[in-house]
Design a protein around this nucleic acid. Structure first.
Lengths: 334, 334
DNA sequence: GTGAAAGCGCTAACAA
DNA sequence: TTGTTAGCGCTTTCAC
């Protein structure tokens, strides 16, 4: 069933059918009803591809992820819901953790004529920056997780510095001085901010920053486990608390400690960042800094639509505040 | 830049450009090179919407989820990877847990001219069955999680009965007799099979099936917590083990027990089903029945392509075996 | 090996 | 209020 068939059956022109289908004015109620009837009877469903070509509006939003993990589920859920409600469809790509794949997928979305792109940045490279800049001239892009300093591209970013400061101050106020830190992967520019917060608070309080207290990760639970192992093996004196760059690595760290018979938080306190879903159900319940991920996704997609509606908007970087979530994995020291 | 511009710049017809772009024969090497050069220089990217309309092949796969949760991440990851590798794009919809939304989204995918649909069933209704049957006549659909008995539609299903039997036998072999069960939500027809397995094994061993040992859930962690609370409050005699219908509810159950000072597995053993990512990192590490979710997603999308390539294939229901994963949340009783 | 031309199913400007 | 018609950017016959 195509528009032509309906037109014939209803005894009108295809233009009239189109008007009815798109709820546009300029059709007598009588005729409108008649056409609607025929449409219903024959279950006519307009071909959205043809509509897209003709109207030069695809009604599709592109979503670019580095890889599917728990961190994205809520954000993606928010995005899809918002789009579906607005009558937009979502085309999703992920790069299997192959950071080079991001570029390919970006082009794929471009070729798909999406009206806007939500780009969860995995690893930023010079090549990608160039592509983003170029594509952004034609299609609005909103960046998530990492922004591009030198380019004027809208972005939604967690307040990573502020969040880590809150976490550190909380630990310090509870009497912790020997604080270890599990770093974000080197390629996450935003992770650097959390590290700077760690350093700043340590220095401000005249606490010694031991090198052995600082270990890297790739954000995975396993790498948190490894990092904790390294911290323990390399330190002559155990830290009393460790701040992890995300909840996953915090969980990994706790796993290692428990395995070694070290109790959390009795012996060592562990704090995460993000507040992923499992954080409040983990045992001990994870003290962390909440990033409202559904909110982030929601704000990002709203921002994207702002840019779609008004291409000349000045690029806005939205910083989402983080909030302390006190639970059971950190204790006071006296 | 459109095909016409490239044709003009290269001094050939658009048909020739099309042949080059699509790697089709019938172009002199010399000309092909020339065209490629122009394409590269001007960064021509074909409009996939136009291609779709013209070729009557959208190269898009539709993905329908009831709601985004941890259970789907790996499966979706597998699906997207496979599609992207094959040059297919993925259109994703979720229904925010509004089961009525599934129908709307199904139609949205249909109108989008997707070439096949992967449908993770949330709640099956008569109305949906009818729509599925109708749409399946034109677009191959592969069902996941739940099949439709009376219709011949391909599906990929976990061996829920077999998996639960394995779990139950494991518990029984360790000496458990008083076994509680956290049920799947009523609308998950597959969940019923796990319940049947529970009953069958209990009966086969002449164990008493106490009504108070059986509690419902909606698969969420919170509902597992609640179910465990009910089991404890309603039983005069505590169970020695509980089998939960998924890992989420198992985690919820453990949370409740720990809060009440009941140790797992020392006092009560808890077993899950699924083996979601956190299962092996939870404390205690969750004993469960593994559903290789990446594998399931992979098989499902492969099956879908089989049907796309050969519409006359007889509908195949693929049952994916489950495998015992012994970890720390269950102990032997003597 | 190459190009002209007819669509694909729709929207939108224009005429009537 | 309605219909005619010219595209949208591509693929795909069919001639040459």
């Amino acid at each position: 069933m195509k528009i032509k068939d309906i037109a014939k059956l209803a005894g009108v022109s295809i233009a009239t059918v189109s008007r009815v289908v798109n709820d546009k004015p300029g059709v007598r109620d009588e005729v409108r009803e008649k056409v609607k009837e025929v449409i219903k009877e024959h279950e006519y469903k307009p071909n959205l591809i043809a509509r897209g070509l003709s109207s030069k509006k695809s009604n599709i939003i592109g979503l670019l992820l580095p890889k599917f993990t728990a961190y994205y589920t809520e954000q993606v859920d928010a995005i899809i819901n918002y789009c579906n409600q607005k009558g937009y469809r979502v085309m999703i790509t992920s790069s299997v953790g192959r950071f080079e794949g991001e570029l390919e997928n970006l082009n794929m979305l471009y070729k798909s004529q999406v009206e806007g792109i939500l780009y969860f940045v995995g690893k930023m490279t010079k090549e990608k920056k160039e592509s983003i800049e170029k594509i952004n001239k034609e299609i609005p892009i909103v960046l998530l997780d990492q922004a591009i300093e030198e380019l004027s591209i809208p972005a939604v970013l967690p307040d990573n510095y502020g969040g880590a400061v809150k976490a550190m101050n909380y630990l310090v106020n509870l009497g912790h001085e020997k604080i270890a830190f599990i770093k974000a992967p080197y390629y996450d520019l935003e992770g650097e901010k959390r590290y700077r917060a760690y350093q700043d608070i340590m220095k401000r309080n005249d606490f010694e920053i031991k090198e052995c207290y600082i270990q890297g990760s790739d954000y995975s639970i396993e790498s948190g486990y490894k990092a904790m192992e390294n911290i323990l093996s390399k330190s002559d004196q155990l830290p009393t608390a460790v701040l992890a760059s995300n909840d996953g690595t915090a969980i990994g760290a706790i796993n290692y400690l428990k395995e070694k018979g070290i109790e959390v938080p009795e012996d060592i306190s562990v704090m995460g960042i993000d507040d992923i879903e499992i954080a409040k159900h983990f045992i001990p319940k994870l003290t962390t800094v909440k990033q409202d991920l559904y909110y982030v996704g929601d704000e990002a997609i709203k921002l994207l639509f702002e840019y779609i509606d008004n291409k000349d908007l000045k690029a806005k970087k939205l910083i989402v505040e983080q909030e302390l979530v006190i639970r059971d994995s950190v204790k006071e020291i006296r």
